[in-house]
């Protein structure tokens, strides 16, 4: 049982006009086995929340706390956060030329576990995980994210999540840019990970479409750097019908 606890988190970024506050007091608790959907309009700060938890150097935490099972996440370096059990599936995964997927996966697994995985079982595990995500075996010998289509990049992110087995995974707009088939494959991967490891999921999305395949336990509406409404899955249905207008107009008053 793990708990990611975010309390009063405020975050700013450096702009040409000085620091700009993006997150304005976020409170959120994600327990093992729970799926939380964070939904909000463009520019509301959803991705900033994801990157801040992962420790991206561009964002400065100006207040609040983030803990994983009581440990201070904000005091950890980016790699320490990952080794502590956090995973961020990125909206825009980065190309790493000359580094093959198989080498990358093995290096990451070794870092996370503190020892190299047993070769035979590892190869089998990777092969099976790739098969589940309908990834061609040749994929393993391609360079990380180089020349990948949008769908391949997202499946590669989910592949890493399934293999690295984090405690809490943050999926940053993993659904954006995917066609329905790819969306189903990616969603299956998330559900598989949840089924096998009691994973806590923080699902950041602009659209309700992915929630047809990954059932959230909680839905949070994120506007202007904070959570403005919370509820169960029914809130997603309401957003589907009404959009974000109700929240954005009140936010500007």
């Amino acid at each position: 049982m793990s708990t990611l606890e975010i309390k009063g988190l405020t975050v700013s970024v450096e702009t040409e006009d000085g620091p700009k506050e993006i997150l304005r007091g976020v409170d959120l608790t994600v327990n093992s086995g729970e799926t939380h959907a964070i939904m909000g309009p463009n520019g509301s700060g959803k991705s900033t929340l994801a990157y801040s938890i992962a420790g991206h150097p561009k964002y400065t935490v100006t207040g609040g706390t983030v803990t994983l099972d009581g440990e201070d996440v904000l005091a950890m370096s980016v790699d320490e956060r990952a080794r502590a059990g956090l995973f961020l599936a990125m909206q825009y995964p980065v190309e790493v030329p000359g580094v093959t997927v198989s080498n990358f996966l093995r290096t990451a697994k070794t870092a996370i576990d503190g020892e190299a995985p047993k070769l035979r079982t590892w190869v089998k595990e990777v092969k099976e995980a790739m098969g589940n995500l309908r990834m061609d075996p040749a994929f393993a010998e391609r360079n990380v994210n180089e020349g990948f289509s949008g769908g391949e990049k997202k499946r590669h992110e989910i592949l890493q999540m399934e293999l690295l087995k984090p405690k809490v995974a943050i999926l940053d707009e993993t659904d954006s840019g995917l066609d329905v088939d790819a969306l189903k494959i990616v969603s299956e991967g998330v559900n598989r990970a949840k089924g096998s490891s009691d994973l806590g999921v923080l699902l950041i999305t602009h659209y309700t479409r992915i929630l047809r395949y990954i059932k959230p336990d909680f839905v949070h509406v994120f506007v202007d750097g904070r959570i403005v409404e919370e509820g169960g899955p029914e809130l997603a249905d309401r957003l589907e019908d009404e959009g974000y207008d109700r929240f954005t107009s009140s936010a500007t008053v």
Binding site: S77, V78, R83, M90, F104, T107, A111, L164
Partner: peptide, 10 residues
């Protein structure tokens, strides 16, 4: 950042 976010030390 991407590599570190996968647990790989700097």
């Amino acid at each position: 950042f991407y590599l570190q976010a996968r647990g790989i030390p700097e």
